[in-house]
Structures are given as C-alpha cells and as structure tokens.
Amino acid sequence: MLKDHAKIIHAIAASDEIVGRKKLQKMIYIAKKINYPFHEKFAFHFYGPYSEELTLRIEELCNMGFLNEIKEKKGGYYQYRYTLTESGTEFLELNEVSMPHLKDCLVDMNGQSARFLELVSTVLYFEELPKEEVKEKIFTLKSKQRYTEEEINQAYHYIDALNTKAAILS
C-alpha cells in the first residue's frame, strides 16, 4: 500500500518544492502518461485530468508528517506549497523508489506554469484523438483559458520533448 505513497514522496523530493495543488496533479498525470509507474486513476475535471486518489494520498502523507503543506493567501485564493519533511526523507530512505531520471522530467515540468501544464495534460488526456479533434475539445472545454493554436502546438512539442527525455534517460 505505501509503495504508491513512496512514489508521491519521491516525486515531491525530486522537485524540491511544488507550488499549487493543480500543478502537482498535472505533474503526476504527465509523468504517468510518459510511462512513469504512478497508479492513481485520473478523470477529466474542471482543470483537466484530476485524481481523487492523488488528493487523498497527499492528505494522508501530510497527516503522517511526511509532507509539509503550507497554505498561503494569494489575493482572492489560497495557494498550497508542498515540500518533504525530515520524516518524509527518512521514510524515502527506508522505502527506496526506483524511477530513474524522473527528477529531470519533474524539474522541467515544475519550471512550467500550471496553466501550460493544464494544457499539456489535457492534450495527453485526449491523445487517442486526431490533433484537430483535440484542438476542438480544448477550444470547447477550455474556452475560458483562451488557449491559442500556437500554445496547443507548443504543448505537443513539449510532450515530444518529455517523451524523448524519458526515453533517452531510461
């Protein structure tokens, strides 16, 4: 059971810090889609792919004292900041996780905006569809985000780059 928890701790440790619940969700989803062994189930939600399982695991890890969740007020909303605790580091040392080169991919993703990762994860969610249909879905389902065709093309290029990086590094 705790193997999946250890993978989440490993991901946050590899990233040093992840700012934002949405960003955390998208990073794990994208990592899963480029073949890292995360097992949380995702469904399409307001902000793209979302996992209730992942939300519960994060909550459990915070309750167990393995993760710090710092809630910060940002204008009209709250933002959450995730880091590993000393206990989380000790847990990870006892429960080694082998996901070679995940750090390289996560550090890259962590440098992207949550908005862009939302687009990338949405493209990946509909990856079985032809590119034109994916664009239509994005323009319809994500109309409030006002994504441009150029941003969608950038998302496709970014996915290719991540897949290449994951393949080369493994």
Rank of each mutant, 00 (worst) to 15 (best):
F91D: 04
L61Y: 08
K26T: 01
K22N: 13
Y147K: 00
K131Y: 11
T122Q: 12
Q112I: 07
E96H: 11
N110M: 08
S143C: 08
L92F: 04
L61C: 07
K23T: 05
L119Y: 03
G75L: 15
E69H: 04
Y125E: 06
Y77M: 12
M109Y: 02
L119T: 09
E17C: 14
G48C: 07
Y125D: 00
A43L: 01
K33C: 06
Y36G: 05
H101K: 15
G20F: 09
K73W: 03
E60N: 13
E133D: 12
Y77G: 03
T83V: 01
L94H: 04
Y50F: 13
S51P: 04
D16E: 15
K32V: 06
E59Y: 14
R81C: 11
E40H: 15
I28V: 15
M99E: 12
E40R: 02
N35P: 00
T122G: 07
P37K: 12
D16F: 14
T55W: 11
L56G: 00
S51N: 08
A114D: 08
G20Q: 02
L56Y: 08
S121E: 05
Y36V: 12
V107Q: 15
N35H: 13
I58E: 02
Y77D: 10
I34V: 15
G65D: 00
E59R: 13
S113H: 08
K135C: 07
L67T: 02
M99S: 04
G65R: 12
V123M: 00
S121P: 10
Y80D: 01
A31Y: 01
L124T: 03
H39C: 05
S121M: 07
C62I: 06
M109I: 11
